[in-house]
Every structure is written in C-alpha cells, then in structure tokens.
Design a protein around this nucleic acid. Structure first.
Lengths: 104, 104
DNA sequence: TGCCTATATGTCAGCCCTGACATAGACTCG
DNA sequence: CGAGTCTATGTCAGGGCTGACATATAGGCA
C-alpha cells in the first residue's frame, strides 16, 4: 500500500495488521502457511518456465487440472504432500527445493 | 555390508539392488521417499537435541505418542504435512529445514 | 524383584484431502 | 462472430491419514 495513503488512513483511526495477526495465527502456523505459499509460487514458476499447461502437469502427476489450479492458488484444501510431489514430478532437485523454501 | 562378504555372496549368485530398484520406484517416487526419511531423521535429531520425549512433542502438536514414533520411524502412514508441522513446532527455521532437505 | 518412563507397533472410526466433473471467464486465432 | 485453449472455482463420493487406545519391550532406579 502507498505509504501516504496508509498514513492518512491511520490518522482517521484505521488499524493495520498482518495476515498472521488478523487470523490469530501462532508462529508455527504462520510459518506453515508461508511455506505452503512459497511452494505454490515455486510450482507455478517451474511449470510456466517449462511451458506446460496445468492440464499437462495434472496428467504427469495423475491428478486433475482443477487440483493443479488450487495448488498454485495456495488453496487450503491442498496438502503439502501433493505440492512437494508435484514439484518433484517437475524434476525439482533437493537443492532447488531448499532454495524455494528459503526464498523470501 | 562388508565388501568381502558381498563379493562372496555375489560369487554364489546373489544379486544386490538398491531399495529403489527393489521396489520399482520412479526417480520422483524415490526422491519423495528419501525426502520423508530425511525429515524423519531431522525430527528425531531436533527432538532429542531438545531433550523432550515423544509424548511431550505429541502434546505440543496435539497428536499422540504413537504418531510421533511412526513419524520418526518414517512410517508410510504419516504425511509430509505432519512431519513438516512437527518440525516447525520444534522451532525449525526455513534455513534449517532447507539444510535437512539437502543433507545427504 | 516391581515400578516408572520412553519408545515401538498394531488397530480403528471419523474426518480431511483426493481426483473427477461441471462450469465460467479470459484470450487467441480463423 | 465461434471454436479452441488455459485457467479459476465449486461440488462431491471415496479413500487415506488422523488421534486415540491398547499392548509390548527396554532401560533405570529403589
């Protein structure tokens, strides 16, 4: 958000919080959610870099296009398991996986 | 295995294979299994380093002692999700998580 | 010896995640 | 315009993972 706009809104009594604060997450929960989002972004990056469609990826991991879309969207209904297995199916090495996790 | 013993056994017609070969796993599946084992080992290492029991850890993650034992044993009935969440509950940072993953 | 703690292993009802399907929007190309 | 592709989103029955429980083994201590 624009700093000026934020200042003006705060002057009028608005409060700003992080997603973590808003949802009342513990540190571990926040770290978990963050991790999922990083993997989701990493999956999208890897897939598009390879130039393959969600449907094509879905076939290689024996899933469906809709589930791939949910994965990349960070949908809560998708497990870490499936995210990681999808990344591995795209040929992601342990080192690359580690880089995705530590990305900021 | 002792190289001499192996040579003697091979001379008698025994064949040796990796777990991956034996189970007929694809590269991705093998990587997935390996990853789980690394996380399992990492969990055990972190827990014992903190000097807490499986029961104590189970309480903090709202699970049970038996499930923690299965986790550390690399039991197939345990999801990556639970493994990672347990590690995070032990205060494992992203960087440490990455180190566990890339450990050999 | 008996008691306590820690860990391993098996089982199971119930819930969460699964793939599949339907549908809609955005975009490209005839 | 219409047809095709790609992606997003909602729904659902069924299967996999869950916590809980029971039980066994091992080690420490009195």
């Amino acid at each position: 958000m624009n700093p000026d706009k934020r200042r003006r809104l705060e002057a009028r009594g608005w409060k700003f919080m992080t997603v973590k604060e808003f949802l009342g997450l513990t540190d571990e929960e926040a770290a978990y959610v963050e991790l999922r989002l990083k993997l989701a972004d990493g999956l999208w990056a890897r897939r598009t870099a390879r130039g393959i469609s969600q449907t094509a990826l879905a076939k290689t991991i024996e899933s469906s296009q809709s589930r791939v879309a949910k994965m990349e969207a960070g949908d809560p209904s998708v497990s870490l398991d499936l995210l990681v297995r999808s990344l591995l199916a795209l040929g992601t090495s342990n080192r690359e996986l580690a880089r995705i996790i530590t990305a900021r």
